[in-house]
């Protein structure tokens, strides 16, 4: 801007930036730090662990050998009693070897991936179609649809949880495992579709109409013009929208808790982490490691998305 900053100004600027970045990153640093600390180290305010502890990660990622649990000697004696049937023996042994500390992180992650990638894919397809229609084609009722999408975009899930749950109940979906999963899947599509419509609608409006017209003069039908010209040009934005929708699904907790709480095998990561946190197995390093692993895909996606965002590709085709 006007006038170069003097030394004092520069130092002040650097400090402000430092404070801002620290404020933004501190909780992340805390998560990473605690996930790597041994228990005796937790109370230490320093973010750097005294020694690195990777056990939590190993356990979550299933890298540790299933721990051989020693069966107490007394029990062993009972088991050795030949009068006991084999079935009973097994039951007793299972009771003592059962590792209910286990947190099947991989399974939860897979659930989360299935729900969020699946919903994001459907959403992307529908929103490409819908957004193209309302931003490019001329027909009556377009404006009403456009406004409704914006309205719907801003209605939060909280307002819908009761009626959606009751609707699922009425049609009998909420009482079965697969029905509930199906409902949740649909709901994730609904939650992401308006976002996709909104983002893509704005993007399509920015693509010069003349490009499609040129394609039509070159002999393409409308559909071919969309597939051969509009979509290739929108690739970065399509990726961004997909990632955005993916993030929404990945982060969602409310509806997952409403529909899936009673079906642990279908828990998504947010639900599973919350359950873990309130359970007796809550150990900080394990929770933090799980948080870290939940964060990681999002951070990677975000970095990818911000790379994509920069590559505006329409420049050059049309002079403004």
């Amino acid at each position: 801007m006007l006038g170069k900053k003097n030394i004092k100004g520069r130092i002040g600027f650097a400090i402000a930036i430092l404070l801002l970045v620290s404020f933004s990153l501190l909780p992340f640093a805390q998560i990473l730090s605690t996930s790597l600390k041994h228990q005796y180290d937790w109370g230490n305010p320093s973010l750097i662990p005294q020694s690195i502890n990777l056990d939590a990660y190993k356990e979550l990622l299933g890298l540790t050998e299933a721990e051989k649990v020693e069966i107490p000697a007394a029990i062993q004696k009972i088991l050795n009693n030949p009068k006991l049937s084999a079935e009973k023996k097994q039951a007793i042994a299972a009771k003592y070897t059962a590792n209910d500390n286990l947190f099947p992180f991989g399974k939860y992650m897979l659930n989360s991936v299935i729900f969020s990638v699946g919903a994001a894919s459907f959403s992307l397809v529908f929103s490409v179609m819908g957004a193209y229609s309302i931003s490019r084609l001329r027909f009556k009722g377009q404006v009403v649809i456009q406004r409704s999408v914006l309205f719907v975009y801003m209605v939060g899930g909280v307002l819908l949880m009761v009626p959606l749950y009751q609707m699922a109940m009425n049609v009998g979906l909420a009482s079965s495992l697969w029905g509930s999963a199906f409902c949740l899947f649909l709901i994730y599509i609904v939650q992401t579709l308006p976002v996709g419509m909104y983002m893509l609608g704005n993007y399509f409006r920015g693509i010069p109409f003349a490009l499609e017209e040129a394609a039509m003069m070159d002999g393409c039908s409308r559909k071919e013009a969309i597939i051969k010209v509009v979509l290739p040009l929108s690739l970065p934005m399509l990726a961004t929208v997909f990632i955005y929708c993916f993030i929404i699904g990945w982060n969602e907790y409310l509806f997952a808790s409403v529909f899936l709480k009673q079906y642990p095998e279908f828990h998504t990561l947010p639900l599973a982490l919350q359950e873990l946190f309130v359970s007796k197995n809550a150990i900080w390093d394990r929770i933090m490691a799980a948080s870290m692993l939940t964060l990681a895909p999002i951070v990677i996606c975000f970095l990818l998305a911000s790379r994509f965002m920069k590559g505006g590709k329409t420049d050059g085709g049309v002079k403004e």
Binding site: S24, L25, P27, F28, Q30, I31, T34, I247, W250, N251, Y253, L269, P270, L273, Q274, F277, I287, M288, S291, M292, T294, L295, I298, V299, C301, F302, S306
Partner: peptide
């Protein structure tokens, strides 16, 4: 931008 995109469930524990 990181706080904005990070999953709530992870960062609340931090």
């Amino acid at each position: 931008m990181l706080p904005y995109v990070a999953p709530v469930i992870s960062v609340v524990f931090g």
